[in-house]
Each structure stands twice: as structure tokens, then as C-alpha cells.
Design a protein around this nucleic acid. Sequence first.
DNA 1: TTATATGTTCGCATATGTTGAACAATAGTC
DNA 2: GACTATTGTTCAACATATGCGAACATATAA
Lengths: 264, 264
Amino acid sequence: MPPTGGDDGPRTLQTVSMSAQVLATLKELDGAGVTELATELDLSKSTAHIHLTSLVENGLVVKRDGKYALALKLFAFGEYVRSRNQLYRHGKPQVDELANETGQYVHIVTEENGRAINLYQVKGDTSVSGEYQTSKPQQRDHLHYTASGKAILASLPERRVEEIIEGHGLPERTANTVTDPEALFEELSAIRQRGYAYNNEEEIEGFRAIAAPVQTPDGDVLGSLSVSGPASVLQGDRFEETLPKQVVNSANVIEVNINMSNRS
Amino acid sequence: MPPTGGDDGPRTLQTVSMSAQVLATLKELDGAGVTELATELDLSKSTAHIHLTSLVENGLVVKRDGKYALALKLFAFGEYVRSRNQLYRHGKPQVDELANETGQYVHIVTEENGRAINLYQVKGDTSVSGEYQTSKPQQRDHLHYTASGKAILASLPERRVEEIIEGHGLPERTANTVTDPEALFEELSAIRQRGYAYNNEEEIEGFRAIAAPVQTPDGDVLGSLSVSGPASVLQGDRFEETLPKQVVNSANVIEVNINMSNRS
DNA sequence: TTATATGTTCGCATATGTTGAACAATAGTC
DNA sequence: GACTATTGTTCAACATATGCGAACATATAA
């Protein structure tokens, strides 16, 4: 059949989509054998096999102790992609600096296809440790339950935000997660006025964060910068005055540096 | 025709290989338009177009200001892959420590399909700056002109080294690069006896390095750890005694930590 | 505006991918 | 260490998804 008659999207290569799914599944399963993959994707063993073989041949997958897994070549690709990113290039030094100043976790985050991408993070020396070393880190790619994500959403056209909500939903993480679209839109409006976003234990109990957007002169958002840490530390004046100022200030420095480099 | 009769490799999906080439080319060209890509890969515009569309649909490529470029999703993939790597997980803390101790660049490197992959690097505070910020960093993925690479090669079966030489050659980088297979094999033997590898301005004039392999108890090499810096600093006793000891020691610590985690 | 290049869509012929079954190689069990 | 069960790999044949060229649409330049 021609790509499922009733479908909407543009014509695409099914073989490529299948291989892309194979990659995604290998990530999901942390590597897999032919049969396992075939079952997972409802394929015949022979098809699963030839997809894996093709991906191996192209260096995107490796076969190790009888299992197929994503190749380090993907890491090389990824490093390249990040290195081309403006927010990363100009944001990294500021992240390092801000982490030193605050002693907490500092992140720069950007958005792609409605999902959050963590470009860089540093753990300041007074921050709690071990938080990110969990072996199976749960997905952190929704935008609505992090300060960084909300700072980004607040800088996007409402239309776009609606699409993102439709596409990815507003799943709950803690009792504090904003799961109602209306409530979210209200908060985004508050963030716009304030200039920065809060995360008050909306992703992880006991964890707070503050984030400011990084924008171009004509209002496009490149991502955001955030500081996060335990609620016991991020509180009082520090949470309401000092840190927000520092975060906004650092974000502004990044903006200026990006503009300068775009001019020359 | 069935995938080029005279060919050797296993049967593979041409469509997948083509899309893989598209990804590689987009990296090469730093993004491209449909026509540009079609020309580069000898495709019809329509074919180039549908490959790009399919990759976009699967999130591996993004279209920005009329150009197609690799997506940040690849970075997310890459981070995942690295995070699963044993040498990275246990090596990172040692890299940080060694960079502090020595003040120079410290790297951990591994090998995949005969090419070097830089898993992690830190720039110690007394090291020269700006060295890695060049906008188009030249390929650093051969193994024979870095200390890290030679440390790895020295830990691989000769057979494997021969294959790698056949597959990738021994291109020259500076007058000091080892470009002769026999000379290389001799040096690898010396490295095995010594326990660590030198790079004496073989990649970049004025730059030296020392690297030690990281191996499993049964002799498989996981990669290597290296310290590098200007020849003016890496010289005399420091180059011949102090640093080698530190590097080998750190590599051993990594080995021990990996073994411990593999036992439990 | 016209002209030129680039991007996108479409129908068709044929090369190509999918499949199930047969074969090979492991892994597990007794 | 032989036997069984599971997993991995190869193959030929058919159906169809793929790649092409031409036509159309859009963007850029003059």
C-alpha cells in the first residue's frame, strides 16, 4: 500500500523509519538481540536482522557479546551537533561561572520538536551529589515540569505551546506538577512578566530551580539557563531575590555574547 | 541487481545506507539544501528530498532557515551511548582528578571500528587555551598519531592492528608521525614493555602526550587515558618519570574500579 | 516585473525490501 | 557430553515500496 492512505504526514521512506525505530528501541532496551527486537517491533526475524546488519555496516550500531547496541559513533555525531549550537558555545563558560558562584547545579537547556534537550550541566561544589548517576535516569524531556522548560515555553508563541501540549501532554511528576493547560498558560504569562521561571518541586520532591530564557534580539528563544538545588537551600531571599538576579544576569550575558558573534 | 554481485559484505538495505550517508554528508557540509545534497551524493533531487523528509520525520534531522542539519536528538542519543560506557563512567572522575594534579589536558579515548573516540576531556588550569575551539576541528580519529591511540593499538592483537592499518592507513600529520607499519609495530612493542605510550609532536607540532591503556583482567583494552600539553612543559624528568607514573597510576585506578563494579 | 535557481509533488517501472521456511550456531538441561 | 530449545543467519520469491524524471511550486536574484 502507498504509505497508509488515510495518513496525513508527507510521504516518507518506510525502511528509514523502521531503522530509526530500531535505533530508538535499542536505546530503550539498552541493546537487544535479533529476536527480542523483532518481537518488540512486530517484525520478522529476517527483517530485524537485516536492519541491524545495515546499521552495523554503517557504524551506527555495534554487536557486542551477541547483543546489538548503539555505537559510539552516535556520540561522535552528537558532540558535533552540540558543538555547532550557539547556546552551547556561548553558554558553557557562563554555566561554569554560575556554578562556581552559586555552588548548585547549573544547566543550559534548549528545545527541539517540543522536547527538552540538556545541552550542558555542571554540578557546583556545594550541591548534593549522586543525583544524576542513577543507572536508568527517567526521561527528562518534557518542558512543563522544569524551570528551564517553562522559561522556554513562556518565550514561545501560544500557538506553539498548544501544539506541544497536544503532542506530548502534561504528565504529572509530583503533586506540584502543573498538569492543567489553563494553569500553565497563566504561569507562563507570569514568567514573561517576571523574566524568569520557578520550579517548586514540580519534577522531584525537595528540588527547586530558577531559570531564565536566552533569546535573540528579535524574540526567538534559543533555550534557557537554570540553577537548581534542594528546597532547603533554595529558599527565602536567596530563592526570591539573589539567585533570580544572578540567573537573569548570566542569561543576559549569554545573549550579548551571541549577538556579538552574530554581528561580526 | 541484487546488491552488486561482486561485493563482499553482507546484504544490507540500500535505503538505510543511503540515509546513513545523508547524515554523514550533512555533518560534512555543516547542513545542506536538497540540491546541494543531491549533487554531493549523486542522487535525483526527489530522492534526496524524500530521504531528508524521512529523517526529519524521525527527528534525526531538522530543517532550519531552509537548510537541513543534524538534529539535537542525535546529541541526546550520543549522551545516552556515552553514559553506558564503562570507561567513561569510571574514568571521568579520574580524568578530573588528574587534570587538577597536572594542570594539563587530560583525555579518555576509546576505539570503535578502528577509529578513536574521545569520550571525555578536561583542560587543566595551566594548560594552553583555545586549542580545541577552532571552528572546523580537523579529524582526530586515527589511532596512530596520538599517544592514546598508540596505547590502544599496543593492547590490541597484531592481526587487528593490521586490519586497522589496511582500513584507515597511516596518514602523516607532522614530520614526526609514524607512517611506516614496521616502525609502528616496533613502537607498539616498546609501549607494551614500557606500559605507556608517548606522542612526541606526531600530531601537532609543539605538542606532546603520554597515555596508558585501560584493560580488563583478561587483557581486553577498553581505551586509554592521556595527558597532553606543550613540549616546553612536557619535558625532562616530568616527561620521562613523573607524568608517566601519574598516568599509569590513574589508569590502574580506573581498571580497579571497573573490575569492582563488574564483580558485584 | 522577469528570470533562475531551488524545493516539492506525482505517477510509473523496476529494483528492493519483507517474508517464512530452512539451515546454522549457540545456550541451556539432564 | 549428548539432546533440546532457543536464537541467529541465509535464501528465493513475491509484492510493493523506492527512485527516477518531469511537472509544478516556491523562493531568490536581477
